[in-house]
Amino acid sequence: MNWIGICGYDLLLPERGVCALVDGEQVALFRTYDGTVHALGNRDPFSGAYVLSRGIVGTRKGEATVASPLHKQVFSLVTGRCLDEPAVAIPVYRARVRDGAVQVSVSVPPSGARAQDRGLVSVGG
């Protein structure tokens, strides 16, 4: 497992995202209200633009979500699945906080994650 340090945890605003460049991948990092950090692909599969880190974070039926800032499709922060169009999903990466720093692992992408646009993404533990 290859954990890469990104930034201080305090740089993440509650319920807002930032983007990090990790091994050439754009990773969107979100801090939800309960303090959890989520890491997902930054690319919006509907528009092709790298913008998901700039979406509004919220919940849908209790599940943490982000809405694309371009056309408002909502994605689960937990599974990466698009809740408005279940056939579409974005990659989910592992993220953790160690000694006040946010770390991300993109070295073992979940299956199909690099294909990015489609395909179910499983989150490894």
């Binding site: 509004i56 919220g58 919940t59 849908r60 943490a64 979500t65 809405a67 909502v74």
Partner: peptide
Amino acid sequence: EGRGCDVCKP
């Protein structure tokens, strides 16, 4: 209830 969304937050 919940933590809002892209409709109610703005």
